[in-house]
Design a protein around this nucleic acid. Structure first.
Lengths: 156, 156
DNA sequence: CGTCATCTGACTTTCTTTGACCTACGAAGT
DNA sequence: ACTTCGTAGGTCAAAGAAAGTCAGATGACG
């Protein structure tokens, strides 16, 4: 098992129990997992970014800390943000996958819908026939189109 | 016996025992068969493609893996028919819409899923960025990809 | 022999982990 | 107040670990 994954799930467990907010000591955590402290930053950057639905703040010096907050947003807020701001006219594959899995975690779409979306937008699906430069543009349009559909459904 | 065939049946055995899903390490498998790692990709591409009823996903880097999911029972002809014969490698917009509404009628997908699919495949989503000749090819691939996903869900 | 399927190896891309160095904060001394 | 020092977190680049790609070699089979 990947170290990063262990750290990720460790933090998520804390977030589930103590709900919506955790505070931790970077060095202690690194010590606990027997890794470099900067590893913690890596995990935060790759798994607790705003795209993943989290905010982090921290403080250095004596008594320093890192605080992680799980953002709670209504479904339609999130969808509007994604459609109008977050997704411009280009959306990379990994970014796309991340957004979809976050929508799933926040229960804005069902797991089945999430896999359907992922299937439609996977590079395998967009695969051969489209020149590379266009894939991201295409993904952005399709993603927005699907999100609007979800929004319409949720609205009615 | 051909190497590819050995690898193929090795994987299929795993899929029969541990049922419907395997995770493997490309390098280990290549080591085991004493071949180049890229040989594994060849086998995946030629024998475990979606057209054959399988989905694959993978991850690079430390702790990377390849996961193969068997989606279609070798008996289930209906879906393979859709995937291989009916759709082929080109799917026009009207035909596509017809197909989706059929799937809905037959309760293979929910109404919500149907609209999601329609949204992804609408000409508006595929709109400007893609040269006309490619749209149908694209639709075909996306449709198949989504169908496979639906099949994966219905199978379990 | 010609063609299609199979194999290989060199090169690329992506993800993870570590370590060296940097910056900020607080408290203790002057 | 001002300096200094110890404690924490931040940054970044380089090394490491897998998997992906693709052109060309090799082989099987009509």
């Amino acid at each position: 098992m990947r170290l990063s994954d262990s750290i990720e799930s460790f933090i998520k467990t804390m977030l589930n129990e103590e709900s919506t907010e955790v505070e931790l000591k970077r060095n202690e955590l690194a010590e606990y997992f027997g890794c470099a402290p900067s590893q913690i930053n890596y995990v935060l950057a790759t798994r607790f970014s705003p795209d993943h639905g989290y905010l982090t703040e921290s403080r250095r010096g004596g008594g320093g800390y890192i605080r992680i907050v799980r953002v709670v947003e209504s479904g339609s807020q999130r969808l509007m943000y994604l459609v109008n701001e977050r997704i411009g006219d280009s959306l990379g594959e990994n970014e796309c996958a991340r957004l979809i899995s976050q929508l799933k975690e926040q229960r804005i779409v069902t797991p089945d819908e999430a896999s359907l979306m992922a299937a439609a937008l996977s590079s395998r699906a967009l695969g051969i026939p489209v020149p590379d430069s266009m894939k991201d543009a295409l993904r952005a349009r399709m993603m927005k189109s699907m999100l609007m559909t979800v929004a319409a459904r949720n609205g009615k």
